[in-house]
């Protein structure tokens, strides 16, 4: 192949496909942002404005104050943060047990974790509703926090097991010889070395809670308790949809997930590579 042929080849096997791919992924995001910044009258106006003619933030103001996104945002944040804290603490403990101890029932525990990955999530909606109904926790943030934590713990435990196994055992032994007990060694020696792994795990757990819909829909029935996905869905189902506020609300819901994701996506490819290989 000469130079011109090579360039042509690259154009068709690389440049054009990657451009199409990027257009396909980015355009829906762009269109939502575009809609969010249009005046209500402009959204329906023909010809469609591919760039807002006179950008406005009125949709954001109305989504945040009138439609209830401030409440949904707060609810999602509470559920997300509490779930992350529980998941991280419990999965460090169980990951530590897996990484550092041989014990009877270890295989059974691992098998149990594996089984959970094959549980269809939709199977949970009816029985969990009944469980939380009996506990009197329907529409209480705890119902979502406990459910999400239980769903996430198996995967994060396996991740933590991997991260902890990477910390040399000698470091811990040295600390214990220097007078630390096991908990102190865990707290002062292992924990600081785990920070990058903990951050990545927290991000993925948080994104899951931020995005989960079906269980949240089933377990909350008061508008004041809606998380963002339930609130958005509720708004989509209304008879007179305020498209500007809907788009603005979506952008608000989008921002934390996208920021966290961009930060952690490198870990994602590398971490998954490790998880699949190991």
């Amino acid at each position: 192949m000469n130079g011109a042929q090579k360039r042509l080849d690259k154009l068709f096997t690389f440049n054009i496909p990657i451009l199409i791919m990027l257009m396909f992924t980015v355009f829906p995001l762009y269109w939502t942002i575009n809609t969010a910044f249009k005046h209500e009258g402009d959204i329906l106006k023909r010809p469609l404005q591919y760039v807002p003619a006179s950008p406005t933030i009125e949709n954001f103001v109305s989504a945040w104050t009138n439609v209830g996104f401030a409440t949904y945002f707060k609810n999602s944040l509470i559920v997300g943060i509490c779930t992350v804290v529980i998941v991280i603490i419990l999965s460090i403990l169980s990951g530590y047990a897996l990484a550092r101890y041989r014990f009877k029932g270890k295989r059974a525990f691992l098998l149990m974790l594996l089984c959970t990955q094959f549980i269809p999530r939709s199977m949970l909606i009816i029985p969990l509703f009944i469980v939380f109904k009996h506990l009197g926790l329907i529409s209480h943030p705890l119902s979502l926090i406990l459910t999400y934590a239980a769903v996430e713990i198996p995967f994060t435990t396996v991740l933590m097991n991997g991260f902890i196994s990477n910390v040399p055992r000698e470091l811990e032994e040295a600390a214990m010889i220097d007078g630390c007990n096991r908990m102190q060694a865990l707290r002062y020696v292992i924990f600081p070395l785990l920070v990058p792994g903990i951050v990545a795990t927290s991000v993925f757990t948080f994104i899951y809670t931020w995005n989960e819909f079906l269980l949240a829909l089933m377990l909350t029935n008061q508008q004041g308790r809606f998380t963002l996905p339930v609130g958005l869905s509720y708004m989509m189902g209304e008879f007179n949809i305020n498209y500007g506020a809907l788009a603005a609300g979506s952008v608000i819901a989008l921002i934390p997930a996208v920021i966290l994701f961009s930060y952690a996506q490198k870990h994602l490819v590398n971490g998954l590579g490790g998880a699949v290989k190991g």
Binding site: M21, L22, T25, V26, P28, L29, W31, T32, T35, I207, W210, N211, E212, F213, L228, P229, V230, L232, S233, M236, Y243, L246, A247, S250, A253, L254, A257, V258, L260, F261, S262, Q265, L268
Partner: peptide, 20 residues
């Protein structure tokens, strides 16, 4: 990062985007 972003976006958000 751009190509992976939809992975982090909830089903409900994606529904809003595509319904628009």
């Amino acid at each position: 990062a751009a190509a992976f972003i939809p992975w982090a976006i909830s089903g409900v958000l994606a529904s809003v985007m595509w319904s628009l």
